[in-house]
């Protein structure tokens, strides 16, 4: 099984350890992983800002980079959702449509494709899970509180396989953190207030580490935590699932 590792631009630039953990984890689980070297960005920043017509360059680049893989896996629900919903190609339209079906967020890939039931990871800390919206409501990584449906959580299921990890229950289990891409700067006041409120929920429940399947939300939460000089740490779920 050839897996193309899709490392979103901001993870590439700011969080290489998340890319490394994702790569190592997939390899541990027996995947043949390739990292296409000319990849950049999924195009979401332009599209969510109302400029989807400017994302064609990113789209074509994505198609060129990832055409040779059975699966495309990335550690970011939001970028994966963007590809799943919006990838188009002028040069290779059918191929792009096909690729949209092969792109997976890391947790859904582990649960739905690899059918992972056990992990060798150990992480002896009290952890709060941030449910990022695009992963949760877009990719259905978890059931959502709005819907009357049986409860499930793919990230939660995976964290449950980690030895000695203490997963806390939050008061508002799936409220948005307020990142929202350019929303975080265009609507700075509300964005930060939403982030502070999410953090307060985690802090009230005495977490030591906040994790999630989307580094962009975590970047926003980390930015507030660091400004508050909080000892609480941020870790992407790949880092925990890959921990020894």
């Amino acid at each position: 099984m050839k897996v193309g590792l899709f490392i979103p631009c901001y993870v590439d630039q700011f969080y290489p350890q998340v890319g490394i953990a994702t790569l190592e984890l997939l390899e541990k689980l027996g995947c043949e992983v390739g990292f296409p070297l000319q990849q950049t960005c999924c195009g979401q920043p332009m599209a969510n800002s109302g400029f989807s017509h400017l994302s064609s360059g990113c789209d074509e680049n994505f198609v060129q980079n990832f055409r040779d893989f059975d699966y495309i896996v990335g550690p970011s629900g939001s970028c994966v959702l963007h590809i799943k919903e919006h990838l188009h190609s002028q040069a290779a339209p059918a191929e792009a449509d096909q690729m949209r079906l092969r792109v997976y967020e890391l947790c859904e890939f582990l649960i739905d494709v690899l059918k992972v039931a056990t992990l060798s990871a150990r992480f002896p800390q009290r952890v709060g899970l941030h449910q990022s919206c695009h992963g949760q409501r877009g990719l259905f990584l978890s059931s959502m509180s709005e819907r009357m449906e049986p409860g499930f959580s793919k990230p939660g299921q995976l964290l449950g396989m980690v030895q000695d990890l203490d997963l806390v229950e939050l008061t508002r289990g799936d409220e948005c953190c307020g990142f929202g891409g350019t929303f975080s700067v265009m609507e700075e006041a509300v964005s930060v207030k939403m982030g502070k409120d999410r953090l307060a929920d985690h802090l009230k429940n005495q977490v030591e580490v906040i994790t999630g399947a989307d580094m962009s939300c975590l970047m926003h939460l980390e930015g507030i935590l660091r400004r508050q000089n909080s000892p609480v740490k941020i870790k992407h779920i790949a880092e925990i699932l890959n921990a020894n």
Binding site: D12, G19, S184, E188
Partner: peptide, 25 residues
Amino acid sequence: NPWYKQRELPAPPKASFREWYLKNR
């Protein structure tokens, strides 16, 4: 920078993931 008003920016690493990958893999 509106981001910086109430938030820190991520601590920039010396090497990107791609740079690490080229060096190590």
